[in-house]
Design a protein around this nucleic acid. Structure first.
Lengths: 141, 141
DNA sequence: CTTTGTGCAAATTCTTTGCACCAAA
DNA sequence: TTTGGTGCAAAGAATTTGCACAAAG
C-alpha cells in the first residue's frame, strides 16, 4: 500500500502520531469514499496488514474522530460509518443496498423530501450537535 | 393515565391495533416531547403499568416506527431516541446534558454551523434515506 | 377456538475495557 | 528507561429472538 503524503499530513495536522496502522486506516478513509464500517475497514486492511487487530481499528477510529480528523456517521442504525471527507456535505443511505452517497451542500439545499436525481428520498434527518446554553455556561466557568 | 383521543386515532390511522400498552406508549410520546430512549419510556411507564415489560416497549416502538406513526432518531450514539412528532423538523443534541431539542424547518434553514440562539453548534449532520436508482428499479419490477 | 399481544430468558451483536507485551524515542 | 501503540480476551450494553402463556374477539 502506498501511503499518500496527504495522509500523514492529516494525522500530524490533527495532533495524532502517525504510526503505520494509523496511517493505513487514515489512508483507507481518504482513498475509499464508501463510508465504511469498522468491520469493512478491518476486513479490507487485515490481509495486507496481518498484525492489525480490530481493537486497533476501534482505537484508531476513536482517536481520529475525537481529534476531528475524520467524521463518524450515524446514518446506519446498525453500524457506525466513517468518512475521511470532513468537508461540509450531506449523506444519503439506500435502505435496500445500504450504500451511502455524498451530497454537496448545494444539493442538500436543493433536496426536498421527494426525490433528487437518482435517489428517491423517503426520510430526512437533520441533526445538530453542540452545547446548550445551560451546559455551555458550565464550560465557561 | 388519561389516554387522549388523538393517541388512539394515531394508532388506528397507521393501521396499529390499539392495545392498552401500545396506547400508553403512543400517548407518552405524544405528551412528552423529550425524545426519550427505550429505557426512559420503560422506566417512566412501568410504575403505573406494572405488567409492562421492556420487550413490549421494544416491540411496540418497532411497530410504531415501521408503520410511520413515530420517528426514531439516531442523533445519540448510545441509544435510539423516539419522537412522537412526525412533522418535518430538525434536532439538536447537547453533547453534555444529552437533551434533544427541536428546530422548526425555518430554524434549520437559518441555522449555520456556528450558533443559533441558545445553542452553540459544533456539528451538523444531514441524513437522507430512501432508495437509490438501482434498488428502486428492483422494487418496481 | 384462533389470532396476536405479551413477557421471560437466552442469544446476538457491537463496542469498550483491562492488562500485558512490544516498539520507538 | 519511559512513553505510548498494540492485541487478546473478557466484559458490557443495547437490542433481537424463541418460545410459551395469556388475552381478546
Amino acid at each position: 500500500m502506498n501511503i499518500e503524503k496527504e495522509t500523514k499530513e492529516r494525522l500530524l495536522n490533527y495532533g495524532i502520531k502517525p504510526s503505520l496502522h494509523r496511517m493505513a486506516i487514515m489512508d483507507y478513509l481518504i482513498k475509499y469514499k464508501t463510508h465504511p464500517t469498522v468491520d469493512t475497514i478491518y476486513n479490507d486492511l487485515s490481509p495486507s496488514i496481518p498484525t492489525l487487530s480490530k481493537t486497533t481499528v476501534y482505537n484508531t477510529l476513536k482517536i481520529l474522530t475525537d481529534q476531528g480528523a475524520i467524521l463518524s456517521l450515524n446514518i446506519d442504525e446498525k453500524n457506525v460509518r466513517y468518512d475521511g471527507d470532513i468537508s461540509n456535505h450531506g449523506h444519503f443511505r439506500c435502505k435496500i443496498c445500504d450504500n451511502v452517497y455524498d451530497f454537496t451542500p448545494e444539493e442538500v439545499f436543493a433536496l426536498n423530501i421527494k426525490s433528487h436525481g437518482d435517489f428517491q428520498v423517503t426520510e430526512c434527518h437533520v441533526y445538530y450537535k453542540g452545547y446548550c446554553k445551560a451546559c455551555n455556561g458550565k464550560i465557561s466557568l
